[in-house]
Every structure is written in C-alpha cells, then in structure tokens.
Amino acid sequence: MTRVFPDPALAGIMPGYLDLRRREGAELLAAAGRGDLDAARLLGHRMKGTGASYGLPEITRLGRDIEAAALAGDGGRVLALAREASDYVEDLEVVWRTTLREDAP
C-alpha cells in the first residue's frame, strides 16, 4: 500500500484521474502483452505528462521509464513496468489532509 497526500483542492477530480489511469493502465498492459511498443510508448508518454500535477511523481517516473523502454525496443522491460504501474495505482491509498478550525471542539 502506497499512501499519498495530494492537495485537498484535487479531491473532486482525483477519482476521475485514477479511473483514467486504470483504463489506460489496462490498455498499456494489453499493448505490452502483445508487443505493441508504439502504443506502449504513446501511453507511457501520456502517463509521464500527468503525474506531477496530481501530486503523484511516481506516475511520471513510471511513464518516463515506459516511454524510454519502448523507444529502446525492450518489450520485457515495458511489460514489467506496465505491471508495476498497474500495481501502483491499484495499491494507492489517497489521504486527504484537512485543517481543523481553531475554534473547532
């Protein structure tokens, strides 16, 4: 389980983002499984561009590595990273930190 603490302003949109990551993660696994490195490269590139804004730099790191492995033609590495990315999203625990008002009981 990986626990993350994003900006509370993202609370309304984080579920949609994680749904997108799950959908594209499934596409990535399928692409990696059939050896479609061009599709995997594109999906890795998209992952790379999204993580930072949601406070999830690991998504960005995995996307960057997937893109690089696909460009290098390393299908085995792409598949391993795709599984790692899928596991990361599935095991993610998002914690929303709230600030108590000073007059709160």
Partner: peptide
C-alpha cells in the same frame, strides 16, 4: 508544459495551478 498548468496573471507573478 510537461503536464503542468501554469498561470501568468496580469501581475506577472507566475503560479503553478491545480488541475482543479
């Protein structure tokens, strides 16, 4: 740029913006 939204307001003080 690179997956991050930046705001350049009229004050010129650039701010990183949330996806919200």
């Amino acid at each position: 740029l690179d997956g991050t939204i930046w705001q350049v307001p009229a004050s010129g003080q650039v701010r990183r913006m949330s996806p919200a």
